[in-house]
Nucleic acid binder design. Structure first.
Length: 561
RNA sequence: UGGCCUAUGGUGUAAUUGGCAACACAGCUGGUUUUGGUCCAGUCGUUCAAGGUUCGAGUCCUUGUAGGCCAACCA
């Protein structure tokens, strides 16, 4: 079969161009560089899939590098969580790197820059420097310390490093151009003093390099060939290259930074700062709450690595603004789970059904398909008896022709069992239906091959046998925000759009085969949706998270009326 | 008042680099189905605007319009 010519995204075009222009394929190397100050989210997943995907496509190594230059925000807990998430997605990094491993090299290079007269120690307050910075349309003013002698700079920088000064009293700045139209080139800060223990270097350092000074040099140290980041770093590219030009050795690979647009998912937020607020304010129950767009949250919700990778691949990568509807993510997980998840029966809103002509004290075990998508069908036994639960929504005393479910005097098929007919609705004093009395056709048993079993009845319902049913907890989730873009309303806080009903906990009844289901196992509750066993489950009580519901065309028909 | 980036159906991405605008999702219609699921078939609809170059423009040029980004001792 002829191979589909895969269309390339603009990032792949850049690499292909470089290869055509003589760049050695052996020198290709990528990296995924998270800051360990929070958990990875669906936006990072896109970046992970891009970089690690490139590594797979070009058979090139990909480093996992922690951009840990700000001890005020970073923690070891996050490092561990990030590694777990990347592994869970199924990717293997070549080297595990830390920007903090390069502190000495970065320091040495900074000294070189000072010696070349390209960096200086500034001793003003941050307010003073901000004032001198100018505005995009107005050039900046040079610092009074800009022309300190090399000797004085060297001495001061050394003493900064030695811890002789308070936090915030001095900084090292690159001497570039206070009149540049690019604000980042107006003598950017390279180092600040921060008397704060670092999760890896502890108190070895009290001066920490800034992002711009660190990132490109780290790429260079690791010999990363292509360094991809999001669009907001586009302006940093000029600085990235300026720094690189000052340390670059002709015989080595000079990394190339290119920018792509971050993927925005509707009805959620993905900035770590905002996610942290959801956690700290108790809106959710932690970073891995199934409502969170974090990778660990999606995992707990029941998303699979394959579905997330498929999603990333489907939305692609480009440079324009975007807002991707969550329904696409939901499609991706349904597509994957449809193939994988065993089918079971579970009733969420039980209504008692009594089959009046079925013998009491009798049970029988019926064959049920585990997954119709499987090539070699396997079956399990499901107990059937005189008293069952069906969904409340599946019975109406009367309904129009479009209602393919149980109504008085009409027949439906019980999945894998018999055809039943509703005879009578039993009500309480307030008129609520408490149970339905039905009769069954004993010859209509599924798979029996009798003419009665082959009769066509319009509806098929799922059910559980009451004496055999297992009670479980079900957690159903809705979107965390009621607005598609909660953080894009000027003057309004995204917290105003929190959906107050994003979690609904109910009890449900499931077939007994689920008794020994393990945390992390996926199931399709037939006619309802996909569910995963939550780690909160105990031997006494299983807890299921609803990953996503099945496509529901009945809901559309019903809503139209 | 400056600079940088972007603009293709409702959504997201393509287009052999100047040669019949395609794919997926969503929507709609029908078929199959012991899940109103899956699957299958069909259908809907697009190059921001105006000029220009060209046999030919989504692609190149000009002007305009709209949106995003840039002034943390954050990354």
């Amino acid at each position: 079969m002829a191979e589909e010519t895969k269309s390339l995204n603009f990032i792949e075009h850049i690499i292909e161009d470089d290869l055509e222009n003589g760049f050695d394929k052996q020198d290709l190397r990528f990296r995924f560089p998270p800051e360990p100050n929070g958990y990875l989210h669906i936006g990072h997943a896109s970046s992970i899939c891009l970089n690690f995907g490139l590594g797979l496509d070009y058979d090139a190594p990909v480093n996992l590098r922690f951009d840990d230059t700000n001890p005020a925000k970073e923690e070891k807990e996050y490092v561990e969580a990030i590694k777990r998430d990347v592994e869970w997605l199924g990717y293997k990094w070549d080297k595990e790197c830390y920007a903090s491993d390069y502190f000495q090299q970065l320091y040495d290079w900074a000294v070189e820059l000072i010696k070349k007269g390209k960096a200086y120690v500034d001793s003003q307050t941050s307010e003073e420097m901000a004032e001198q910075k100018g505005t995009p349309s107005q050039t900046g003013i040079e610092s009074p310390y800009r022309n300190r002698s090399v000797e004085e700079n060297l001495d001061l920088f050394q003493r900064m490093k030695n811890g002789e000064f308070e936090s915030g009293t001095h900084v090292l700045r690159a001497k570039i151009d206070m009149a540049s139209s690019n604000m980042l080139m107006r003598d950017p800060i390279m180092y600040r003093i921060l008397h704060k223990a670092h999760h890896r270097t502890n108190t070895d350092w009290c001066i920490y390099p800034m992002y711009d000074w660190t990132h490109g040099e780290s790429d260079y140290i690791e010999q990363v060939s292509h360094s991809f980041c999001t669009l907001e770093f586009a302006m940093h590219r000029e600085l990235y290259e300026w720094f690189l030009d000052n340390v670059y050795d002709e015989n080595k690979v000079k990394p190339k930074q290119r920018e792509f647009a971050r993927r925005n998912l509707s009805h959620t937020v993905v900035s770590k700062r905002k996610l942290l607020r959801l956690v700290e304010d108790g809106v959710v129950n932690g970073w891995d709450d199934p409502r969170m767009p974090t990778i660990s949250g999606l995992k707990r919700r029941g998303y699979t690595p394959e579905s997330i990778k498929k999603f990333a691949e489907t939305i692609g990568i480009a440079k324009r603004e975007n807002l991707i509807d969550v329904s696409l993510l939901e499609f991706c997980v349904r597509e994957d789970l449809n193939k994988k998840a065993p089918r079971v029966m579970g009733v969420l809103n039980p209504l008692k059904v009594v089959i009046t002509n079925y013998p009491e004290d009798t049970e029988e075990y019926l064959d049920a398909e585990n997954n119709p998508e499987e090539e070699n069908m396997t079956y399990r036994k499901v107990p059937f008896s005189r008293e069952l639960y069906i969904e409340q929504e599946d019975f109406r005393e009367e309904a129009n022709r479009k209602f393919f479910r149980l109504k008085l005097g009409k027949e439906v098929r019980l999945k894998n069992a018999y055809i039943i007919k509703a005879e009578k609705a039993i009500k309480d004093d307030e008129g609520n239906i408490t149970e339905v009395h039905c009769t069954y056709d004993p010859l209509s048993k599924s798979g029996s091959g009798t003419p009665e079993s082959q009769r066509k009845v319009k509806g098929t319902l799922h059910w559980v046998s009451i004496p055999h049913a297992k009670e479980v907890e079900v957690r159903e989730y809705d979107r965390l925000f009621t607005d598609p873009e909660p953080d894009r309303h000027e003057g309004k806080d995204f917290m105003e759009f929190i959906n107050p009903d994003s979690l609904r906990v109910t009890k449900a009844f499931v077939e007994p085969s689920l008794a020994d289901a393990k945390a992390g196992e996926h199931f399709q509750f037939q006619r309802i949706g996909y569910f995963i066993v939550d780690p909160d489950s105990t031997d006494e009580k299983l807890v299921f998270n609803k990953t996503v519901e099945l496509r529901d065309s009945w809901a559309k028909i019903d809503a139209k009326k």
